[in-house]
Simulated scan of single mutants.
Amino acid sequence: MKQSNAKITTDELKSLLQRATAYLEGIGEGTFDLETDYYAIIPTDDWEKLEQPQVVIGSLFDDVAELKRAAKNEVPFTSVDLDRLASLLRAISQHITPL
């Protein structure tokens, strides 16, 4: 069995998401008006193809709409929503501290 160096538990993830929420509230950010819709993303299958990864286009507006549906339990939360959430968190980070 291959040993993982990036092992994390759901309890640790829960703690990190709670800390992220507390951080955002602590800096006075309660709502995010994100103006950028389209973004580039490297699909997980291509993460290790460092020379020529495939890049696809995502829509933050679609991601937020679908995440809101999942938050209201209108649709089940799936692994696709993890990607959507990651993209949303990346956009929020950029909104707070532009690189």
Score class of each variant (00 low, 15 high):
Q3I: 14
N5K: 12
A6C: 10
A6H: 12
I8G: 06
I8F: 12
T9N: 03
T9W: 04
T10P: 06
T10A: 08
D11P: 02
D11G: 02
E12K: 10
K14D: 13
S15P: 01
S15W: 11
L16K: 14
L17P: 02
Q18F: 12
Q18E: 15
Q18N: 13
Q18H: 10
R19Q: 14
A20F: 12
T21H: 06
T21S: 12
Y23R: 00
Y23C: 00
E25W: 00
E25I: 04
G26Q: 13
I27F: 03
I27P: 03
G28Y: 01
E29F: 04
T31S: 05
T31E: 15
T31W: 01
F32R: 03
F32H: 07
L34N: 05
E35A: 05
T36E: 08
T36K: 14
D37L: 11
Y38H: 14
Y39H: 07
Y39C: 09
I41N: 06
I41P: 00
I42C: 02
I42Y: 02
P43K: 06
P43G: 02
T44C: 06
D45W: 13
D45K: 15
D45F: 00
D46A: 08
W47V: 02
E48G: 11
E51A: 15
E51C: 13
P53H: 05
Q54H: 00
Q54G: 02
I57T: 14
I57L: 10
G58H: 03
G58K: 04
S59P: 06
L60I: 08
L60G: 14
F61G: 10
V64M: 12
E66G: 09
K68R: 15
R69K: 15
A70G: 02
A71R: 10
K72G: 02
K72M: 03
N73S: 15
N73Q: 15
E74I: 06
V75R: 09
V75D: 11
V75T: 09
V75Q: 10
F77K: 09
T78V: 05
V80H: 10
V80P: 00
L82W: 10
L82S: 11
D83R: 02
R84K: 13
R84S: 02
A86I: 11
A86H: 05
A86M: 10
L88V: 13
L89D: 04
R90I: 08
R90G: 01
R90K: 05
A91W: 05
A91R: 05
I92M: 03
H95W: 09
I96T: 03
P98G: 08
P98S: 07
P98A: 03
